[in-house]
Nucleic acid binder design. Sequence first.
DNA 1: AAGCTGATCAACCGCATGCTG
DNA 2: CCAGCATGCGGTTGATCAGCT
Length: 230
Amino acid sequence: MRKPCCEKEGINKGAWSKQEDQMLIDYINTHGEGCWRSLPKAAGLHRCGKSCRLRWINYLRPDIKRGNFAQDEEDLIIKLHALLGNRWSLIAGRLPGRTDNEVKNYWNSHIRKRLMSLGIDPNNHRPRHRLPQFTEITTSSGSMIDDTSPSKPFKSSSPTNHFEGAALVAQQIVHSDDQTSPLLELNLDLTIAMPSSPTRKRTAMEKKTKSHIISAEVGADPLPTLPLFK
DNA sequence: AAGCTGATCAACCGCATGCTG
DNA sequence: CCAGCATGCGGTTGATCAGCT
């Protein structure tokens, strides 16, 4: 039986107070990150280590960039999502100052809806309208998307705005089997920060992430920079 | 002004994985 | 090799707020 990550009694939950924030900041400024399990006790916080880590990473870190996402950030998220799927930490890693949680929230609350309003399935970046080469489109939950819904028709050319253009690009990246496509020249310079053990999460993630991810794995490639679509 | 509804986002939860003894 | 621990991740929840009726 798995032990809970923290004792449930005497542990605060929910929103953090300013005082708690300050205690966490002070402690990490003094002692640095790490050893999250023992941190709360050492810092005098009545929180579990997980909660402290999340609060620090998603909110308190000094390099966090807050506020609205810029247009180019949106574009990049779309492109990376097309490539990587819901691997939010990898996507966030390409957006300086953004966290996986923030990217995930932004995707779910903004981008997802906008893609759907453009007639693009945000799960696979394909047009939601049935086309000869796209016969079965399902959501992540497995339910069929209502193809008959009167959503805006997918525009295959002349994107009317930056966002739409980016969505199209993402779409084309994913679904172009044509190796000569100019889009394949795209090099996002996906320098996936190599942790101490680069394969740590990957196998699990690949099991989790549902198909269609372009295999851009570093694997045996000793290069630190991932040369996508060169 | 009050109630309702949908959107947003901070935080929690459970699971997977690597590490260590 | 194995079990337990620590950490990181993605999915989900719930509190709060804004807009609408």
